[in-house]
């Protein structure tokens, strides 16, 4: 890793920046947590967090907001990560919130939007004053605007017109009781950086990221897996294709992409050449309106 000219590689520099941010959270905040979805970004974030405090254990719990619409491979992976790293897992369950009548299922069946009140409720119950998330600025145009330390009011709301200035690598985590900060240690990483890191550091990710055969059907130009969450309608033709997932989200909305990339190296090559963003290729939730993400974030989404 050392270089005669004392030059840090891109990946090392991104990793160092993320470690700095995560340590700053722990040093400044009283009750931080790390949001862990089992997706590639949160896996990389957790991987970095473990290294930021080694040999001590990570000094915060991981939180999973469970929509109930999961890929089984991802849940298994989550539980194994928790087990292997001696983590404390807190689950905020959307299903439970529906059963209690706190939130109502949306007509389209997606739980992407109703996970926000569950997240806010989990934050409030556990009195978290900081939640780290794996979102990256290159994902989406509203995210491209967000600070690394993103202030949220007592309702968890993001006010894009009134963000705190954020200079150099000085992060202001000061909040009043009830307010909180969302922190994005991977803000400056791109999707390609994530895969290069996974390849370089041999980070394990769930199997659904690799090309495999799956029964899928076409919905609005995207390949949806035919299963309990995405049921083919009359006229939908179910076919078996070699696909992989580029993102992992609510299973009713997340589409697969056709791919032969069954190794990390092939994925890196595929991502370097892709002409579609990951959300554009795989997410139904961002197609609702021009400002779908911004609107969700204003409501408290991460």
């Amino acid at each position: 890793m050392t270089h005669p000219h004392y030059h840090l590689s891109e990946l090392d520099a991104l990793e160092a920046e993320a470690i700095h941010i995560i340590r700053e959270v722990v040093a400044q905040m009283e009750r931080p947590a790390l949001l862990f979805s089992g997706g590639k970004d949160s896996i990389v974030m957790l991987h970095v967090a473990i290294r930021a405090f080694a040999p001590a254990p990570v000094p915060f719990p991981v939180v999973h907001i469970d929509t109930g619409h999961n890929f089984p491979e991802v849940l298994e992976f989550r539980d194994r990560m928790v087990q292997d790293n001696g983590l404390q897992l807190i689950v905020g369950s959307v299903q439970e919130a529906i059963d209690r009548g706190v939130v109502r299922e949306e007509p389209n069946g997606s739980r992407n939007r109703i996970q926000t009140p569950v997240l806010l409720d989990t934050i409030e119950k556990n009195r978290f004053d900081a939640c780290m998330g794996g979102a990256r600025r290159d994902e989406e145009k509203a995210r491209a605007k967000e600070r690394v330390f993103s202030f949220r009011d007592e309702f968890g709301q993001w006010d894009p017109r009134n963000q705190r200035p954020e200079l150099w690598s000085l992060y202001n985590g000061k909040v009043h009781p009830g307010e909180s900060i969302r922190v994005f240690p991977l803000s400056n990483w791109t999707e390609l950086d994530i895969w290069n890191y996974i390849a370089d550091r041999e980070v394990e990710v769930p199997s659904i990221y690799f090309a495999h055969e799956r029964e899928v059907f076409d919905r609005g130009g995207m390949w949806m897996a035919a299963n309990e969450f995405a049921v083919p309608r009359d006229g939908d033709e179910v076919v078996t294709k070699k696909v992989r997932y580029r993102t992992v989200g609510d299973a009713t909305l997340t589409a697969a992409v056709e791919s032969d990339a069954d190794t990390v190296e092939k994925i890196v090559t595929e991502i370097a050449a892709t002409r579609l963003t990951e959300r554009g290729a795989t997410r139904g939730d961002d197609r609702v309106s021009e400002a779908a993400m911004e609107d969700r974030k204003k409501e408290g989404y991460f």
């Binding site: 891109e10 290159d138 491209a144 605007k145 017109r161 803000s187 609107d295």
Partner: peptide, 29 residues
């Protein structure tokens, strides 16, 4: 509009907050 991604920015045709974008050429990132 590639960087002016906020609702209020598009409505007013001005930039309100910083947008970060990432790109690379064969020479630099």
């Amino acid at each position: 509009l590639l960087t002016d991604g906020l609702r209020a920015e598009r409505e007013q045709g001005i930039t309100i907050d910083v947008a970060y974008r990432y790109f690379a050429t064969p020479r630099r990132k």
